[in-house]
Amino acid sequence: MSTAKAERLLIADDDPDLVDAYVLFFEAYGYTIQTAVDGVSALAAYHAWRPDVVMLDIQMPRMDGHAVAREIRRMSVVPRPLLLAVTALRAPAERVESFKAGFDHHFVKPAQLPVILAAIASRTII
Rank of each mutant, 00 (worst) to 15 (best):
M1P: 07
S2D: 11
S2G: 00
L9N: 01
L10P: 01
I11N: 01
I11W: 00
A12S: 10
D14L: 13
D14Q: 11
D15V: 15
D15Y: 12
D20A: 15
D20G: 09
Y22V: 04
F25D: 05
E27M: 12
A28T: 13
Q34F: 00
Q34N: 10
T35Y: 02
V37C: 13
V40W: 01
A42R: 06
W49V: 02
R50A: 14
R50W: 02
D52G: 02
D57S: 06
D57L: 08
D57V: 09
I58H: 06
I58T: 08
R62A: 10
M63Y: 00
G65I: 12
A67V: 12
A69N: 08
I72A: 05
I72W: 04
R73L: 07
M75F: 01
P79W: 03
P79T: 04
P81W: 07
L83E: 01
V86T: 07
T87S: 07
T87W: 04
A88V: 14
L89M: 12
R90C: 14
P92I: 10
P92S: 05
V96E: 15
K100P: 00
A101N: 09
A101M: 11
F103Q: 02
F103G: 01
F103D: 01
H105N: 11
H106C: 13
F107Q: 06
F107I: 12
F107S: 06
V108K: 06
K109M: 06
L113G: 03
L113S: 06
L117V: 06
A118D: 13
A119N: 04
I120P: 02
A121L: 15
T124S: 15
I126A: 14
I126P: 14
I126D: 14
I126T: 14
